[in-house]
Design a protein around this nucleic acid. Structure first.
Lengths: 190, 190
DNA sequence: TCTTTCTATGCAACTCGTTGCATAGACAAG
DNA sequence: CTTGTCTATGCAACGAGTTGCATAGAAAGA
C-alpha cells in the first residue's frame, strides 16, 4: 500500500494531476519509488472515492483539461497514521544477482557485456542525481538556508547517490571476478 | 518472471523440494531475492507442467513424503536463453524514504525510533552475511581454492555486504538530519 | 498534408506477490 | 494427554504491478 502514501506525500508537496504525478515519479520520487501512469490513475480514483483526495477540474488552453488532485483532511490523517506505524525493512530483488549465480552453468564471458550495460546505466543515474543535488541543494542557485522539507529531500537524494556509488563499485568487482574466471579482458567502462 | 530463473539456478546448484527451496530463499538466495512458500509451490507446479522440471517422489521416515525437483533439459535451455537476454537495471522501492519525505508534514522526532529499528535490522543482516562469508569463503574452514560457482556466490555475497554497509551509513546520515531538524538527541544505536 | 510527439485520461487482461487457512504425520515438552 | 513445533504440501482470495490498447486535441516537423 505504499504507493498510496507516496502519492499523498507528493500531493502534499504540491497538488497536481495524474499525468504530472507520473512524471514526478520518473524524476525526484523515482530515486526510491517507481510507478506507471496506470497504477497512479487507478490509485487516485480509489483514494478520491474514499475521500482522501479532493479533485478540481482545471480547463486548459491548447491542451486537454486536467484533474488536479490535492490531499483532503482524511488523507492527511491517513498519512499521519501510517507514519507512526512500523514498517518492515525492505529486502532486495536483484535480477542481475540471479544471472551472476546462473552463469556458473553457462559461459561467464557471456555476461560481461550485460554487466557493463548496467554499469553505464547506474553511472548515468549517478550523474543525474549529482546534477540534481547541485541544482537544488548545494550549488550557487540553491536556496541558501534549506527548510526542513528540503533537508529531508536532500537526505533522501544522498541515499540515492550512495546507492548508485555502491552499485557501481560492486559491478566493478563483478567484472573483475568474471574476468578472472573467464580469462576475458574486461573492456573499458565509463 | 525472475522467480522462475532464481528457482532454476537454485535447483541446478542442488535439487530439492519446495519446502527446501523456501528455506534456501530465506538464507543464501535471500541476499538478493525473497519468496514465500506459496509462490514457490505455485511456480514449481507450473514449471513442472511445462516440462522444465522433473519430479521424484521421495518417501521419508518420520516425516511426510517430499517431491524432489530437479532441472530437466528444457529448463536448462530456458535458463541459458534468459542469461543471454538483456534485463532492465532494477529500480528501488524504498518505503522508508517515502516516510522520510512524509515527515515534513509531521513531527521529525516521531521517525527516530523507526529509523533506529531499521538500523538495527540492517546491522543484524550485515553480521549474518559477514559470518557466512567467513564460514564459506574466507575463513580457515572454507575450501582453499574456490571453484567458479563459489567465486560467483562470493561476489554476490560481497554485493549484499556492500549494500548493508551503505544502508547503515545512510541511516546514520538520516538520524543526524532528523536530529538537526527536530532538536532531539539521537539515542545510541548498535 | 500527413505523421509524429506531447499532454491527458482511462479500460481490460494478465501476471506477480501476499495472507489466511487447511491438512497431516512425527516428535518434544509440559 | 494435550499443546506446540517442525516437516511438507496445497487452495482460495485478494491486492499490487505490468502491458497493450484506445481516445483526443494541439503543436511541430517532414
Amino acid at each position: 500500500m505504499a504507493l498510496d502514501h507516496a502519492i499523498l506525500v507528493s500531493l502534499l508537496e504540491k497538488p497536481g494531476s495524474g499525468y504530472e504525478l507520473a512524471r514526478r515519479f520518473d524524476r525526484s520520487i523515482g530515486y526510491f519509488w517507481t510507478a506507471t501512469h496506470q497504477q497512479i490513475y487507478r490509485v487516485l480514483a480509489r483514494m478520491e472515492g474514499d475521500g482522501l483526495l479532493a479533485v478540481r477540474e482545471v480547463p486548459q488552453q491548447g491542451r486537454p483539461d486536467k484533474k488536479e488532485y490535492s490531499v483532503a483532511g482524511p488523507g492527511r490523517s491517513a498519512l499521519a497514521g501510517w507514519l507512526h506505524e512500523p514498517i518492515e525493512p525492505e529486502s532486495l530483488r536483484h535480477d542481475l544477482a540471479v544471472k551472476i549465480r546462473g552463469v556458473a552453468f553457462d559461459d561467464p564471458a557471456a555476461l560481461v557485456q550485460e554487466v557493463e550495460r548496467h554499469h553505464r546505466a547506474h553511472s548515468d543515474r549517478l550523474a543525474r542525481y549529482l546534477a540534481g543535488e547541485l541544482r537544488d541543494f548545494t550549488g550557487p542557485d540553491a536556496p541558501a538556508p534549506l527548510d526542513a522539507g528540503q533537508e529531508l529531500q536532500h537526505v533522501v537524494l544522498r541515499g540515492g547517490i550512495a546507492y548508485e556509488r555502491m552499485t557501481i563499485a560492486w559491478l566493478d568487482d563483478v567484472l573483475a571476478t568474471l574476468h578472472r574466471l573467464g580469462g576475458t579482458a574486461p573492456t573499458a567502462t565509463a
